[in-house]
Every structure is written in C-alpha cells, then in structure tokens.
C-alpha cells in the first residue's frame, strides 16, 4: 500500500536573481514499511523534497498525496494538524526543546495530540527504553551526548504513531559509533514495528543499509534502486 505518492513534483525558488529548480518533476511512490534513503550531493534537492513530502513546504507544481490525502488542498492550520497526526520528524541537529527533559520532549507531541496522561506515561517510557535511553529520561538535552539526543528525537518522532518518519540527515552530526547505533535502532523499529523511514543523507553507512535508494541530482531523480 502506497503511503506517499508524488506526481511531477517541482519546486522553483525564484527569490534570487536566478530561478533555481530545487526539485524537478519528481514522481515517486513509497509504500508502507519502506526504509528509503534519498541521496545526492549538497544542493541536489533532498531536503526540499522531504520538506514537501512532510507538508512543511509547498511545491511550485505537481502534487503530493500522503495516505491518499492531497496535501496541496490543505491550508496551513490543516497541514500542521496533519503533520502532528501523520508524520514524525528527525532533524539533522536534533532540535529538541532545550528546556524539556528527554521524557518531556518525547511526551510533547502526544500532549499536542491530546493523549491522556496515563497513555502518555506508558508510551514515553516504552519508547525511551526502545531507543535505549530509558535511564536518561529526566535529563535535559544539554546533559546528553549528540547520539543520545538523536535517539530522543527518534522517540519523539515515533511518539505520535506516525504513518512514516522523515529524517533529514539524521547521522550528519554524529560520530561513527553513535551513527551506527542510531541506524541499528531505526532498522530495528522498521523491522519490528513496520515503521516507514525516509532519509535524506549522503552518509555512505546509511546508504549501504537502506533497502531503497533514490538518487537526486539538480532536483531530478537520477536513479531509484530497490535492494
């Protein structure tokens, strides 16, 4: 079953003197349970593509359907609600809320969703245990390493039980050991819980372990290879 479907997606930035086609006529389908890497050099349009799929940015033309819902038909408020209920985000620089603990950061999304306290508590502890930082639950981001923070970010992304997780260069700021551990974790979640992951990356370790690799160059799909 297709979770994401883009059709002739194009994004043109024309704020500068020269219009830039960040995404150029991209049509892809991503099915449930995929572990997909979107790769390519800097400026190839990876992040823009992920932002459009995640409803953070709007395409200049073309369409994006997530779980059969056309994102282009939604206004900003509807998109925020849609993201909250359907998409988990993992960012390159973790982007945890600095004043909240690991537990509170993970819980935050569920609070926005209006999940009951009891359910929140159970799920947060379960998630933090799953990502291996149950013991760090009461620490704030500044008291944790980059790898630990990114694990919290993964737990936060999964907290809302999203249809898929978008991860923008999740290993870029991690040392090799932390990056390996994070990849193991995400693969495990993908296999055991059937969580769909879509990464943008140019980290070869991630590319090597992805089951599908979409290569972009100058905004166009250069190759789309399943393994």
């Amino acid at each position: 079953m297709s979770v994401i479907e883009t059709s002739h997606l194009t994004k043109i930035y024309d704020e500068g003197p020269v219009a830039v086609r960040a995404v150029d006529d991209v049509s892809i389908q991503i099915t449930e349970g995929e572990f997909t890497a979107v790769v390519g050099p800097s400026g190839s349009g990876k992040t823009t593509l992920l932002n459009i799929i995640g409803g953070l940015d709007r395409p200049s033309s073309g369409s994006v359907k997530v779980a059969d819902v056309e994102l282009g038909d939604m206004n900003e408020d509807q998109l925020i609600k849609f993201r909250l209920e359907n998409i988990g985000f993992v960012f390159q620089s973790y982007n945890l809320i600095p004043v909240l603990t690991a537990k509170e950061n993970t819980e935050f999304i569920m609070l926005l969703q209006g999940v009951s306290e009891k359910e929140r508590d159970t799920r947060v502890l379960q998630l933090l245990d799953e990502v291996g930082i149950g013991e760090q639950a009461n620490k704030r981001p500044s008291e944790m390493s980059g790898g630990q923070q990114q694990r919290v970010a993964v737990a936060r992304a999964l907290a809302s039980r999203p249809k898929f997780v978008l991860a923008d260069e999740p290993t870029a700021n991690l040392d090799s050991k932390s990056a390996e551990n994070l990849l193991d974790l995400m693969l495990q979640l993908n296999k055991e819980e059937n969580v769909t992951f879509i990464f943008s990356t140019h980290d070869q370790r991630v590319i090597d372990r992805a089951r599908r690799v979409i290569t972009l160059e100058d905004g166009k799909i250069l190759s789309d290879e399943s393994r």
């Binding site: 609600k81 993201r83 209920e85 809320i97 600095p98 926005l112």
Partner: peptide, 16 residues
C-alpha cells in the same frame, strides 16, 4: 527562531 520553526514543524499550532 529555529526552535519556533521546529515546534510548528512537529505540529504545534501557531496560536499556541
């Protein structure tokens, strides 16, 4: 700025 962007990205309503 960045934090506000993240909060909206993950689903916090602007009004909140």
């Amino acid at each position: 700025k960045r934090e506000f962007g993240v909060l909206v990205a993950v689903g916090m309503k602007r009004i909140k």
